[in-house]
Structures are given as structure tokens and as C-alpha cells.
Design a protein around this nucleic acid. Structure first.
Length: 970
RNA sequence: CCAGGGAUAGCUCAGUUGGCAGAGCGCGUGAUCGAUAAUCGCGAGGUCGUGGGUUUAACUCCCACUCCCUGGACCA
């Protein structure tokens, strides 16, 4: 290597320490640590103090496992909202929450404890549940922080916290005292072995052999009312069931209103009514022999027909139900309201007796009075399984049994003991949707109606959410809020031993809430009745003096549904902002969750808030779709198509997870896969490189010293500022409407099309070869700086790690914030002072000319007439207004077309535009590679153009001495 | 079965009040070693889910259907 100075060394090539390779998996944790050390979230709260508030209230995820992609999406979107609102000038605190009570955790803990649980005292079981939830709260917190979500992670809200449990109970008492709550029956799955109610999730379907029986019910209403052909005949209908033990509870026979039924006469004279479609199979199964069709009857006409119970003194009512199917059975369904969901609701509709005469151990009990029995029936005190053959025998005895056989079918079993379960109507707590309420103007309405009216005052995004939740509220049954479980907030109410009525006493309620505040929900299990209930308490209804504690707990949806009360109204960091929302419309309160929450959290929160405060708990509800795989299938463990956000963060970076969240329209279903994550990573690299190049070209630029005023900028540079203002305005709008995917696309397009492939490319000549302090170069740097300053802020809510990193490499400015996250979005006028539209319009024409020039150049290149851009000249012939415009911009055309020379000439009248590409004239400058009219030597450097010589002089670089003859090439 | 949503290039998304289908990525291909584990140019790729209707004209408006997704109902 020669020690002679190289010409290349005199160029101002980009220089920056900002690394090209991000190394996100290693570097993100370091940045997280830095943020923690500088207490960034707390600093944000201080900085934002006094600004108008914007509240995003967190829907609590369930703390029973590591986070999945849906969680990452959810928290990512929320983080975008909170950060963008903060940078838009709001005070937007974020208090994350966790849903802790409920079945999934209790089941897990059950599994861990095994049968030991049954002997453990309640507080010990609760302790185990708490520990389980806490473990996953800690894990999820760490995982959410890892993907860059800002929030009060040191102190999230938890539905199992003492004060939260106290507030939940307080909310329940509110319902109770205001008269929303009643106790009623509801059928639930019941395991008679474990003597417990089971939730849907605790039921497993296994094969089971049941007796399948056909039973005839004798018609007692007038046969001729159904059809004249039946007059005087002995008429029956036939029911089919696999649970003979429910026959004593049989209250009705359900027909399908739209089915056609036939009345078939057998040879021995009896007439049987069954569904026409099933007639043949029933006749065969019951061996009815040859039959004659006497009449056809529409199902709806069988309503209010009456029958006699096969062996009890009871009238059975003919009722209608559309759930009757023609797949199996007879089309006439035996209906025991206390032992089936359909049966129960049908029973409600027809006011049938719903009393359950099967006890918690599954033993049947007769009601001798109602049944007019002289002695206990043979099934008295037998379990349902023992009762089956007894009932079959009774049916036989009473000549009602037409057929019996064994049937193996899929039947619900207890998940734990694997015994078959039964349906049993049990007493539950309900909130009535028909509770009378008053509007603000004190007009009368109902809870349901007022809720629907409040829905209308909320902004639903997407808008169809309003219709969806309105439909749900309009048609939903009363809210069953009790669960026969332990892991939850107890329904801390005393029931009279005499009449089973609850004691409703605000003073007592307050006392119990206070107890919960101090000791948590455990207190209900440990406290003695006498400690809480004042001596001498009498039941206001029956005067009873002995009481018991209710052992049910509240539905977990009630827990999370009161978070607006337990958190927004109660937490010191949120209280005042939330109250200002409740008082008027000044403050927005946003709930943002998956669309499934229309029946979940949006729903339960709405109900509790309307009941207790007379209004919705939010002003704005945004919903996300579902995450699917690349083929549009739901993610599932069995398909193995899941994408684990934690894994992606560890391998590619949390930033990539964030970028994926930003890349899709979350309102619809969203595809995710390893492949799509890799795409985001690609794009990330491009963006990062663009930032790197921007920073590299800002080296040596001190805004305070070198910044060029807008009026002094070169036209191209001013144009780019106009573009940047346009982009900024667009992006701020997208943030405003939560269209993050549009931010993503707009930023990409700008970085790739406007910057990388146009402006930055075209600027190289100026940036590299002009003197560093020249006006032209400072003009470009001013704009590059402003673009970077704008872009880094615009991107910060999404690329939170990288933006903050870029921030550290920007030219230092006195008094600037420590982190990009403490800044505000750029102001439009600060980027470009006037409306950018006129300038953008003008440049559209210039770009049309440029496009044509590039096309012609490409053509010439293909024909090998020219090589690269700088080896060509361009001649543009135009006329009229365009010619005037081009003349005005003549000085800049060479740069934007990236050739050595551009000549603008007047074209013949009828040709609007004609572009010609020519081999460049002049000589190639060894320094700037432009073809120039004159090149000569500069010291030992040969073939240097005048422009470069001047630049070198300006840089203070004298012609270097050497042995070469000072002669220029021809 | 009920309610709600979706369908535009291989992928992610644009397509304003109906007027010749767009961008980026990816892919293919060329240039380049002064953004180089980079950068730039060029190219191929869509009957806008299907079938009707309204209109001079439909990706866009109307009707029906198919498929996918979400939530719920149901299996005596």
C-alpha cells in the first residue's frame, strides 16, 4: 500500500456507530434494564402530569400459563395505543391487570393436591390457588415486559388481591341491596360421587351403557280435538329415553311445532301418535305389528294436549320445542324440567314444576303429598342408577313399557372420578335483567333496557360490535352469578335456616367488606357466624334465629366485570381521570380486547356499571379478531401450528413480534406463522438500515450551528420536507384511529420508496463529494435530520426498542429528553411551515418527467448505448407550462435523474415531452465520477473536476505533492 | 341451528361519492464493491370467493350461494 493520500479519503462517506446488525435478542434485555434503571414509566407519569387524560383500562388476562400469541397481540396493541396517546399529548397511564380466580386454576390445583384437597381446610386450598396464580402473574409480567410493553408492572391489579376481593364483594352487595339479585333454580351437571356441581369444562364424554326405553303416555284430553278420526279411541303418545330414573320427574311431553305427526292404529286397537318421519322405526322398535294410519296432526296442534303419567297421579302436558329432532326417538320428548337444560327452560316457559327430587348424593325422593302416594314408591332413597331397573319394572307393571334394550352411547362423565354425571336443578343466585330501574330523568325502565340504551352512547370499533352486544343483551337470560366452587369471592351472605332467605342488611354488608379488606376472602371461611351476625338477629321473613353461611362463590365474570369499580374508581393513579369520565365526556375510557369479549368482559363490565352507576364503564370499545395460521386455521396444539411470541422474541427479538402486530389489520382475523415473522424481520432490517444511513449522513452536523432555514433549502430538500409533513399528518391520523397497520405500511413505503430508492440514493453525489460545510450539503443534512427526528418519533410506539436506540445516535441537541418515549409526536408546521399540497402537485409533474427519463435511460442501457447513470446525459424537450416549470427546476434535474448533465430545450409545438439519452459528454472526474467539461490534476491526483477542486480547497485540503507529473488527461 | 364478521397478486395491505385493478415484501433477473451479511434498476404475477341483478359502466350498489373465522344454542 502506498502512503500517498487516496482521493477516496477526501469524500464524506456516511459515518455512524449505529450498528447495522441489531442483535435484538441480546440487546433488547439491556435496553429494558436501562429503562428500569432510569424508571422510565414513572418518569413518563411525572412528565405527563397535568395533561388531559386518556385511559386504556386493561382487560385482565387469566393467570394460568405462559402468554400466547393472542396475549402478545392484545398487549402489543394496547401498548401502541398508550404510547401513541402519550406522544400525542395525553396522560395515558397503563395499569395492567390479572384475572386470578376461577375454575381453570382450581382444577390445576385440584390435580396437584389430589384427593387430599377434600380434607384440607378452605384457607389452605385458597393459599395453594393464590400461589399458583402468582406464579403465572410473575411469568406473564416478565414476558409482557420482554416485548416492550410499558406499564405499571411493579403493581398490576389482581382480582385476587385483598382490596380487589373486598371491592368485588362490595359490588355484589350493591346489586343485592338494590334488588337485582334473586335465588332460583337452574340445571347443572352434577357428580353424585363427588357430590359437586361440575362446570362444562369438567365434563368429559365417555361411552356408557344406558337402558333405552320406549314408554307410552295415555292421552287424557279429548282425542277428537286432535282429529275427528280419533274420536272414542284409546290414544297414546310414545316417548323414548335413556334415563328411566327421570320418569318420576316427567312433567311434559315436548313436540316439535313444525313436525308432522301420525296417529297409527294397531291391530289390538290402541292408537299411537309419533312423528311421521320416525313412525317406521318406532313401530319396529316397539313391535307394534301392522298399523293403520288414522290421521295426520301438526306438532303445533299437540300443544296443551294432556296425558297421564305412567304410574303417578299426575297430568302430563303437551308442549312445544324446536329442539326436538327427528334423528332418533319418537318425536315426542319426555320432559323432566329438573334434569335437563332444554327441559328446564321448557318447564319455565310452561310453568311446570321444576323441583328437583334427587338429592346431592343422587338419591330419589318422592313427594307423597303431591304424588298422592299411600306408601313410599319402590325407588325411594335409591340412587339414580339403582332406580333405573326399578322404574323400568314399574313401567312394565303399569303396562306402559313398549320396549327396552341396552344402548351404548357417549355420555358426560366427571373429569375427576370418571363416573357418569347427571343433570340436576339446583338453587343458584341470579341477577335479573328485568329489574326495574330509573333513567336520569327518573322515567321508568328495566335493567335490560337501560343497558341497551347505554350501549348506544359508546363508540364501538368496528361499528358492528354495537349490534352484536345489543343482540346479546336483548336476548340473554338472567345472569347466574353463583358457582359451587371455592377459588373465588364468596357470596358472603347469611341464609335463614328456616326459610332459606338471605339477610340483606347494609350495615352488616359493610362490616363484612371491611373484614375482606383486612383478611381477604379467606375470612369468610374462618370467621364464626356469631362474630359477624349481631346477637338476636331475626329473619325478617320467617322470624328464624338460626343462620348458615352461603358457601357459593361469585362467577369470575363478576370479578373482572367490576374492575372499573375495583380499579378505575379506586386506584390512586386512575381515580381522578376515571371520575372525570363518569361525570362527563371529557376523558375517554377505552376497552380493547378480542371480539370474544362481547360476551365476556365488555358484557359483564357493562352490566355491573349500568346497574351500579347507571352508565357504561367505557366511552370506546375496540375489538380485535382472532389469530390464525397461514392457512387461516385456528391455532391449536394438535395442529402444531401455533406461534409462540416468547420464542420469537428470544430468537428474532421482541421488536419483531411488535412489528408483526403492527403489520396486520387487527379488526379482522389475523394470520401468523414463522414465515410471516421472518418477513417482518426482513422488513425490520431494511428499516434499520435506512435509519443507519440517515444517521451516517448526519455525522458532523450540529443542528444548532448548521441548520439551514427552510427558505434557504434547495428545492429538492424542501420538497422532501413537504413529503415528510404529508406523511406525518397521515400517520398521526392513523394512530388516532388505531390503524396501526396503515402506519406500518406508510412508514415502509416512505422509507423504501421516498428515502432509500429515491432521496437518499440521489443525494449521494451531494453528500459525498461536496465540502462538508457547503450550503448544499448543509441543506440536505438539515432535511435528513428533520426526517430522522420525525420518523424516529412516528415509529416509537411500535419500534420502541429501535427508536430509542436511534435516539441515542442522533445529533445532540441541548436540553433534549433522555428517551424518545418522553417526547411528543412532531408538529406539522415544525417540519414544513405551509400546506404541502401545492408543492407536491408541482413535483408530480417533475416526477412524470423523471419517470420518462429513467425509462429512456433504461432503454439505452439495454441497447448498450450507455452504462450507468453518470455515464449519460439527458436532453429534455418540452413546451408550454411544462417547459417553464422545467427551466425553473433545471439546476436540480441532474441530481434527481442521477446523470451527469441535463439539458432542457424547447420542443416542437405538437410534442409535449421528448427525452433523449446520450453518452455523457466531457470527462469522468476521478473523485465524483461525474462527466464534467473540464478535469485536470490536483497535486498528484489526476482528472479532478473543477467542482471537486473547489470542494477540496474549501475543505482545506491542499494539492498533495508527489512524483507524478502534474498533467491532466485529454 | 342462531347472531356477527371476512373473502383484492405467493404474503401483508390500499382502493375516496361506481369510470382502464395499486403499493411494499417475496420471487425471477441485471447493475454495483463510495449504505456491502448492504444498495439500485428491470420483469413476471390478479376473471377482485361463486352465480344472478341494477347501470352507458360494478372490486365498488342489490339479491342468492360457497368457503373460512368468532361467539352462542343443541345432542331427550
Amino acid at each position: 500500500m502506498s502512503s500517498a493520500p487516496e482521493l477516496k479519503a477526501t469524500l464524506s462517506l456516511p459515518q455512524t456507530a449505529f450498528p447495522m446488525k441489531a442483535n435484538l435478542p441480546q440487546n433488547e434485555p439491556l435496553r429494558l434494564k436501562k429503562w428500569a434503571e432510569m424508571r422510565l414509566y414513572e418518569k413518563l407519569r411525572e412528565t405527563c402530569g397535568g395533561r388531559p387524560a386518556y385511559l386504556l383500562h386493561d382487560g385482565p388476562p387469566y393467570a394460568n400459563g405462559p402468554i400466547h400469541l393472542g396475549h402478545a397481540l392484545n398487549k402489543g396493541l394496547k401498548d401502541f395505543v398508550v404510547k401513541s396517546k402519550t406522544m400525542a399529548g395525553f396522560d395515558s397511564p397503563y395499569v395492567p391487570g390479572y384475572d386470578c380466580h376461577g375454575l381453570p386454576i382450581e382444577i390445576k390445583v385440584d390435580e396437584q393436591l389430589g384427593r387430599k384437597k377434600l380434607e384440607m381446610p378452605a384457607p389452605a386450598v385458597l393459599e395453594a390457588c393464590r400461589a399458583y396464580a402468582q406464579k403465572y402473574i410473575d411469568l406473564q409480567t416478565q414476558q409482557f415486559e420482554r416485548i416492550g410493553v410499558f406499564g405499571r408492572w411493579q403493581k398490576p391489579y389482581m382480582t385476587m388481591a385483598r382490596d380487589y376481593e373486598a371491592r368485588t364483594l362490595e359490588a355484589f352487595f350493591g346489586f343485592l341491596e338494590k334488588g337485582f339479585v334473586y335465588r332460583g333454580l337452574k340445571p347443572v351437571y352434577w357428580c353424585i360421587h363427588d357430590r359437586t356441581a361440575l362446570a362444562e369444562a369438567e365434563v368429559e364424554y365417555e361411552n356408557h351403557t344406558s337402558p333405552s326405553i320406549y314408554v307410552r303416555y295415555k292421552l287424557t284430553s279429548a282425542p277428537e280435538a286432535l282429529s275427528p278420526a280419533l274420536a272414542g279411541r284409546e290414544v297414546y303418545t310414545i316417548i323414548w329415553t335413556t334415563t328411566p330414573w327421570t320418569i318420576p320427574a316427567s312433567m311434559a311431553v315436548t313436540f316439535h311445532p313444525d313436525f308432522e305427526y301420525v296417529a297409527l292404529a294397531t291391530e289390538e286397537g290402541s292408537v299411537y301418535i309419533v312423528a311421521a318421519e320416525l313412525a317406521a322405526t318406532v313401530v319396529a322398535a316397539c313391535k307394534l305389528g301392522s298399523t293403520t294410519e288414522l290421521a295426520r296432526i301438526k306438532g303445533s296442534e299437540l300443544e296443551h294436549s294432556t296425558y297421564k303419567h305412567p304410574f303417578l297421579e299426575r297430568s302430563i302436558l303437551g308442549v312445544l320445542g324446536t329442539y326436538v329432532t327427528a334423528d332418533q326417538g319418537t318425536g315426542a320428548v319426555h320432559t323432566a324440567p329438573s334434569h335437563g337444560a332444554d327441559d328446564f327452560y321448557t318447564g319455565q316457559k310452561y310453568s311446570l314444576d321444576q323441583t328437583c327430587r334427587v338429592d346431592s348424593a343422587g338419591r330419589l325422593h318422592a313427594d307423597p303429598q303431591a304424588w298422592q302416594l299411600s306408601s313410599p314408591p319402590p325407588f325411594e332413597d335409591k340412587t339414580v342408577w339403582q332406580a333405573n331397573p326399578i322404574v323400568v319394572a314399574m313401567l312394565e307393571e303399569y303396562r306402559a313399557l313398549l320396549a327396552v334394550s341396552d344402548l351404548e352411547h357417549s355420555y358426560p362423565h366427571c373429569w375427576r372420578c370418571h363416573n357418569p354425571v347427571i343433570f340436576r336443578a339446583t338453587e343458584q343466585w341470579f341477577i335479573s335483567l328485568e329489574t326495574p330501574m330509573k333513567r336520569d330523568d327518573s322515567s321508568e325502565t328495566t335493567f335490560r333496557q337501560l343497558t341497551i340504551e347505554e350501549i348506544d352512547k359508546v363508540v364501538w370499533d368496528p361499528s358492528w360490535g354495537k349490534e352484536r352486544i345489543t343482540n346479546m343483551i336483548a336476548t340473554r337470560p338472567d345472569w347466574c352469578i353463583s358457582r359451587q366452587r371455592i377459588w373465588g369471592v364468596p357470596i358472603a351472605v347469611f341464609l335463614c335456616e328456616g326459610c332459606n332467605d338471605p339477610i340483606i342488611d347494609p350495615a352488616l354488608d359493610k362490616k363484612i367488606v371491611g373484614l375482606f379488606e383486612r383478611e381477604g376472602a379467606e375470612a369468610w371461611h374462618t370467621a364464626a357466624i356469631s362474630d359477624l351476625l349481631p346477637a338476636g338477629t331475626k329473619c325478617p321473613k320467617c322470624g328464624g334465629t338460626t343462620f348458615r353461611k352461603e358457601t357459593d362463590i361469585l362467577d369470575v365474570w363478576f370479578d373482572s366485570g367490576t374492575s372499573w369499580f375495583a380499579v378505575c374508581e379506586s386506584d390512586a393513579d386512575l381515580r381522578s381521570a376515571y371520575q372525570s369520565f363518569q361525570k362527563g365526556k371529557a376523558t375517554e375510557v377505552l376497552y380493547l380486547e378480542g371480539g370474544d369479549q362481547h360476551r365476556g368482559w365488555f358484557h359483564s363490565s357493562l352490566l355491573t356499571s349500568v346497574a351500579l352507576r347507571g352508565r357504561a364503564p367505557y366511552s370506546h370499545v375496540a375489538t380485535a379478531g382472532w389469530t390464525l395460521d397461514e392457512q387461516g386455521r385456528a391455532m391449536s396444539k394438535s395442529l402444531g401450528n401455533g406461534v409462540d411470541p416468547v420464542d420469537i422474541a428470544e430468537r428474532m427479538g421482541g421488536e419483531i413480534v411488535r412489528l408483526w402486530v403492527a403489520s396486520i389489520d387487527f379488526r379482522e382475523d389475523m394470520a401468523a406463522s414463522e414465515n410471516l415473522m421472518a418477513r417482518c424481520a426482513e422488513l425490520y432490517r431494511k428499516l434499520r438500515n435506512t435509519f443507519r444511513f440517515l444517521l451516517g449522513n448526519l455525522s458532523g452536523f450540529d443542528p444548532a450551528r448548521d441548520r439551514v432555514l427552510e427558505s434557504g433549502l434547495l428545492p429538492l430538500d424542501r420538497y422532501m420536507l413537504a413529503r415528510t409533513r404529508e406523511l406525518t399528518e397521515k400517520i398521526l391520523g392513523f394512530y388516532e384511529t388505531f390503524e396501526f397497520h396503515r402506519v406500518y405500511h406508510a412508514v415502509n413505503e416512505f422509507a423504501i420508496v421516498d428515502l432509500s430508492s429515491f432521496y437518499l440514493d440521489v443525494l449521494k453525489d451531494r453528500m459525498y463529494t461536496f465540502a462538508p460545510t457547503s450550503q448544499e450539503r448543509r441543506s440536505a443534512q438539515t432535511v435528513l435530520w428533520q426526517i430522522t427526528e420525525a420518523l424516529v418519533r412516528l415509529v416509537a410506539p411500535i419500534l420502541s426498542f429501535t427508536a430509542d436506540e436511534v435516539w441515542e445516535y442522533l445529533p445532540q441537541v441541548a436540553g433534549r429528553e433522555e428517551s424518545v418515549h418522553l417526547t411528543l409526536f412532531p408538529k406539522l408546521e415544525a417540519i414544513f411551515s405551509s400546506d404541502p399540497a401545492p408543492m407536491l402537485d408541482e413535483w408530480k409533474q417533475i416526477f412524470a418527467v423523471r419517470d420518462e427519463a429513467l425509462r429512456v435511460l433504461e432503454e439505452a442501457r439495454q441497447a448498450k448505448r450507455i452504462g450507468k447513470g453518470l455515464e449519460a446525459d439527458i436532453e429534455i424537450a418540452a413546451s408550454g407550462d411544462l417547459l417553464v416549470l422545467l427551466h425553473r427546476h433545471a439546476a436540480g434535474l441532474k441530481e434527481i435523474i442521477n446523470v451527469s448533465n441535463v439539458r432542457v430545450v424547447e420542443s416542437a409545438q405538437d410534442v409535449p415531452l421528448d427525452v433523449t439519452a446520450l453518452p455523457a459528454s466531457g470527462h469522468k472526474c476521478a473523485r465524483c465520477w461525474n462527466f464534467m467539461p473540464e478535469v485536470s490534476s490536483y497535486g498528484i491526483w489526476q482528472n479532478v473536476c473543477t467542482r471537486c477542486k473547489n470542494a477540496l480547497k474549501e475543505m482545506g485540503i491542499n494539492p498533495p505533492a508527489g512524483h507524478e507529473p502534474p498533467e491532466a488527461a485529454a
